[in-house]
Amino acid sequence: MTMADFNASPPQEAEEGLLACCAVPRWAREVAAGRPYPDPETFAEDAIGVLDGLSWDEVLTALAAHPRIGERAAGQGREASWSRQEQSAAATPDDAVKEALVSANVAYEERFGHVFLIRATGRSAGEVLQAALDRLGNDPAAERAVVRRELAAIVRLRLEKLVNP
């Protein structure tokens, strides 16, 4: 879909596309309501601005739509497909790294109460693992800030996919 196609789409269709980028209904409604956007850059900036205003409960809703790092997203939808693509670079045939990622995910979820979120695109499995281990040392407030940055990075990538054929 192009930017023009997105701008011209019915509100429900626009919101459905946006929900594949971030699974927060209020965010999708507000971003769709901001149409028309003159270009993909303005679209992304405005969408991230709305994302920055999400409550922590809304961020948790977004996180709940993301599979654990190292787990394959189920389903046939756009979001699942994008998630599989995003995590493919961090996939590894190394069983020790896979096991360490599982352990890091469990420790992270026990510490912070939600899935470990990271923009995996362009990162190796070892880099993702190291980031998870490093972030376990964060206090909850610092980790929330990191989660918001990582979510914004993922959403930005997905917005680009949404409006660039």
Rank of each mutant, 00 (worst) to 15 (best):
R111Q: 11
R84N: 04
R111T: 08
A73T: 07
F116S: 02
S124K: 04
Q87S: 07
G113T: 06
K98M: 14
A62C: 03
G75I: 05
N105D: 02
V97G: 10
E110T: 12
I118P: 09
Q76T: 11
Q87D: 08
H114Y: 12
V115H: 01
A107H: 13
E79L: 12
T121Q: 09
A120M: 02
A96L: 13
H114S: 02
R84W: 13
L117T: 00
E86N: 07
A74G: 15
Y108K: 02
A100W: 06
A96M: 13
Y108D: 07
S81Y: 09
R123P: 09
F112V: 09
A120P: 02
A104I: 11
P67V: 05
A120N: 01
Q87R: 05
S103R: 14
D95F: 09
A91M: 12
E79K: 02
T92G: 11
R123D: 06
V97L: 12
A80E: 11
D95Q: 11
A64E: 13
A74E: 15
A90M: 10
H66R: 01
R78C: 03
V97H: 04
A73C: 06
E79P: 05
R68N: 03
V106P: 11
R119Y: 00
G75M: 10
A90W: 13
A120K: 03
H114V: 09
P67A: 03
W82N: 03
G75S: 13
D95M: 04
A90V: 06
K98L: 15
R78N: 07
W82Q: 06
T121K: 08
K98R: 15
R68A: 00
G77M: 09
R123S: 11
R68M: 07
A73W: 06
S83P: 05
N105M: 01
F116H: 00
S88M: 14
S81W: 12
F116R: 01
G113F: 00
S88W: 09
A90E: 04
A104Y: 08
A107T: 11
A65Y: 06
E110D: 15
R68H: 02
V102N: 11
R119M: 04
E79D: 08
G75Q: 08
W82A: 13
V97M: 10
A64D: 10
R123K: 13
A125Y: 00
I69N: 01
A96P: 08
S81N: 08
S124L: 13
V102R: 15
L117I: 01
L63S: 00
R72K: 14
E79V: 04
L63A: 02
Q87V: 04
Q85L: 15
V102M: 15
G126F: 15
E86S: 02
F116I: 02
T121H: 06
A74I: 14
P67D: 01
L101T: 00
S81G: 14
D94M: 13
S83T: 09
G113Y: 05
D95E: 14
S103I: 07
S83G: 05
G113I: 06
A80I: 09
R72N: 06
V97C: 08
